[in-house]
Nucleic acid binder design. Structure first.
Lengths: 217, 217
DNA sequence: TTCGTTGGACAGTGCCACTATCCAAGCATC
DNA sequence: GATGCTTGGATAGTGGCACTGTCCAACGAA
């Protein structure tokens, strides 16, 4: 198909597709001649993936490029590609290691991983961006004076582990070997907004149950 | 304290504090004279809250203003203020109701709410932004060809309901009546990044357990 | 041949979260 | 009381990002 059809079927404006091509998020179409390029179903799928990452997952364009680079890198074994792709994802500001709240958060997080027996996470603790995000969020809450019980954190972590198990079961049963990396990355990027939405809906529901009718007029 | 001290203690640059004042995220200090203003602990706390919402929660400045406006609105009862504040939060692009995937997602989401017995959510379905986010995320996944079992969604929803119960228990036991709205809003804004981080860590851990050592070198 | 269409290059736009500069009033010291 | 640093407020500017608009030469259908 031509650019125009690709645009039509994906709902993405032509100018934007050109931009993604320029940024290297899409591979160029097969050149038919100097003034015509042909795109196929793979391009369409990739374009939809890119759009979903950017619009639903709010991933910056540069990060999408990096993530896709890892997904496509056939020179690496699957687990490594997946890890590298997830690695590229989150962009929380670096925690200030001097800050007392950050240090406190490190301690609590380390204890948490130990309680959970997440030995892999423990080994990667110093470098995993997810771990860093966790510390930043915890430090922010602490700085605001919320001093929660480590048990609470443990309970949250168990819930999210439950979600991770669901994610990976899904990947195993529903994706072909070739698609597993892409599916897993999507799991990290697109399932999260879904979980967030469910979380907020659940808060609204539970709040209405406890304190009365749902308000919001 | 003066602006300079407020800046020092919060770690936020003076110019940025001035910007927040301009944008109405902070109430002006008590004017001592034409050229001096005095700030107190409440300002510091509010500033930290604003920073956490913007940097950890990635909430846009305009949205922070709106959310805080609801939090501070003493003319409304608590549940309504909370609802209104949460209402202002998410900024997913409007789903295109013409799109077949969006319509399909609506159906699945409605069934989900019914299965869960979330009657409050059902009543608000047409307008809740969280519901909209859910539909958008589901439609994006479907468009990419992931056709999951409604049971899976149900399992995710139960997990997130578990998280919501934890949130609200925390609010009940740890916040004074006056602080409940603020605490609950924080629950929505700051706990989410924490959950997300835990989710990704759990994915890394579970993935390492299933497929071998943690890779990423 | 004509004329609308196509893909690529490149410059421009709009938004957003800051950030830098000015300025006059305060205050501290001499 | 003069000098000079600091302060708060107003205003303009910056840099990043995700597009978007314009131009142009080459196609290609009529």
């Amino acid at each position: 198909m031509r650019l125009a059809e690709l645009s039509e079927r994906s709902g993405v404006p032509i100018a934007t597709i050109k931009y993604y091509l320029r940024e290297g998020l899409l591979t160029p179409g097969r050149q038919i001649n100097a003034r015509t390029a042909e795109y196929d179903e793979d391009h369409l799928r990739r374009l939809r993936l890119v759009r979903a990452m950017i619009q639903v997952g709010r991933v910056p364009v540069a990060t999408v490029r990096e993530v896709l680079g890892h997904v496509d890198d056939d020179s690496l074994p699957r687990t490594i590609r997946l890890g590298a792709a997830l690695w590229a994802l989150p962009q929380v500001p670096e925690p200030d290691e001097e800050d007392e709240y950050v240090r406190g958060a490190h301690e609590v997080a380390d204890q948490l991983l130990e309680s959970l027996g997440w030995s892999n996470a423990q080994a990667l603790v110093t470098i995993s961006p997810s771990y860093r995000s966790l510390v930043v969020a915890m430090a922010a809450l602490r700085r605001l004076g919320y001093d929660w019980d480590p048990q609470l954190l443990l309970a949250y972590a168990r819930l999210m582990h439950g979600a991770a198990v669901l994610d990976l079961d899904f990947v195993e049963t529903h994706a072909s070997e070739a698609e597993k990396v892409e599916t897993a990355v999507l799991g990290a990027i697109l399932v999260e907004p879904m979980l967030q939405a469910l979380h907020r809906l659940a808060q609204e529901e539970e709040s209405a149950r406890r304190y009365g009718f749902g308000d919001q007029e």
